[in-house]
Design a protein around this nucleic acid. Structure first.
Lengths: 122, 122
DNA sequence: ATTACTGTACCACATCGCTAATACAGAAGG
DNA sequence: CCTTCTGTATTAGCGATGTGGTACAGTAAT
């Protein structure tokens, strides 16, 4: 963790960090996350900021919290898969909306995106 | 013009309005835009807000301004086409970035986007 | 009950973005 | 010149947001 990007809220960067660890499998379903104070210590940040990240992740269904016990990764893989799908749809919808404000129809947008993958790697 | 969406800055909505008129051809290259005060009157908004919109549009190369004379649509169609391309690339790049944070590779993202167009119209 | 751990609620404060009020400055025509 | 049109700079206020300080509240083990 070098430092935080000042352009992005800390709690959001922490959310991304945790989401990434779940996707990559470093954090497993049902596993416990560090306590807000511990993680706050690690990141040199106020516990409230960690709590904020946990709260938002809970709102998204990625983790759940038991007061006095801790915060844990959600169990149900279904939920997580559905969630991915929902978020993907939001992203895709936004993509087409942005492109259409430039005057591109969906088919054209797709074609451009496909081109993009050829110029870039992977 | 019903009203402005309170969730989006007024100056930005005005930018979109003008961009749309340029794309659709209602505003032609070299044509003059209304003065900041006139448009401010039309939209019942402070002239500074219009000026802000004009300034940003100028920064993007869509219009140019001559102090004391007015604000005009850019002449060079090339510039405008390049601009569209640049902005499209930014949007596309952001799209793939967002999707990859969900764990989707570019090819998967494309496939999902293609599916999306089948479920939606056009 | 006490202790020591969890998360949470409340409040204050700094910062930032947007908008408005107002005054300044360049251009063009009478 | 002076009027009247252009855009621009300056400043202030307001609201939203992010973060921190601190105190409260639930859980579990001793």
């Amino acid at each position: 963790m070098p430092q935080f990007d000042p352009a992005i809220p800390i709690y959001r960067q922490i959310m991304d960090e945790i989401s990434g660890q779940i996707i990559s499998g470093k954090l497993k379903a049902g596993g416990q996350l560090p306590s807000v104070r511990e993680l706050a210590q690690t990141f040199q940040v106020n516990p409230n900021t960690i709590a904020r990240a946990y709260r938002e992740l809970e709102r998204e269904g990625i983790v759940f919290t038991r007061r006095g016990q801790g915060t844990f990764v959600s169990e149900e893989k279904e939920t997580f898969a559905n969630l991915k799908r929902e978020r993907a749809e939001t992203i895709i919808g936004g993509f087409f909306r942005d492109m259409s404000s430039l005057g591109f129809r969906k088919q054209e947008s797709l074609a451009l995106a496909r081109e993009f993958t050829k110029e870039e790697g992977d």
